[in-house]
């Protein structure tokens, strides 16, 4: 049998841990929409509050064959394979930005289908492989 003091300390620590766990859970729950680093096109379609002047981030894949570069302006479509949104941007893009790769665009919504970005971030996926292997995979897929 454990001494009474030990039991008391164990109870105290459990109480502290339990209450902080609940507190953190509530905080994360209330902040849940702010914790999301970006919204997907589907989120934007479903959300009621699409204020035009609020700065938001939209993320997803750059749709294949959607990238148009005319002078300094870049236009492309972000898709999550259910819904899509057209993005217009002028400025420099990161090296990893290309079609069929993840992207996060920061800017303002014009309407539910059109977004003007003032910053583009590339999102890297979890795949790492040497270039030779990528060539082989490419050949096999075609």
């Amino acid at each position: 049998m454990l001494p009474k003091k030990v039991k008391k300390r164990a109870a105290l620590l459990t109480a502290i841990l339990f209450s902080s766990l609940i507190a953190i859970f509530i905080i994360l729950k209330t902040l849940s929409s702010n914790i999301l680093y970006f919204k997907s096109p589907t989120d934007i379609k479903n959300s009621q509050d699409n204020s035009i002047n609020k700065k938001i981030r939209v993320g997803g894949m750059v749709k294949k064959n959607s990238l148009i570069i005319s002078g300094a302006e870049i236009k492309f479509t972000i898709t999550d394979f259910k819904n899509e949104i057209r993005v217009s941007y002028s400025g420099t893009v990161p090296n990893l930005f290309s079609e069929e790769k993840g992207v996060v665009a920061e800017g303002k919504l014009q309407d539910k289908k059109y977004f003007i970005a003032d910053r583009i971030l590339a999102k890297h996926d979890e795949n790492y492989m040497p270039p030779e292997l990528k060539e082989i995979i490419k050949k096999n897929v075609k």
Partner: peptide
């Protein structure tokens, strides 16, 4: 910085 295009992001 070279891959995402930013040094810091307040993501989770």
């Amino acid at each position: 910085q070279p891959t995402w295009g930013t040094f810091w992001a307040w993501d989770a």
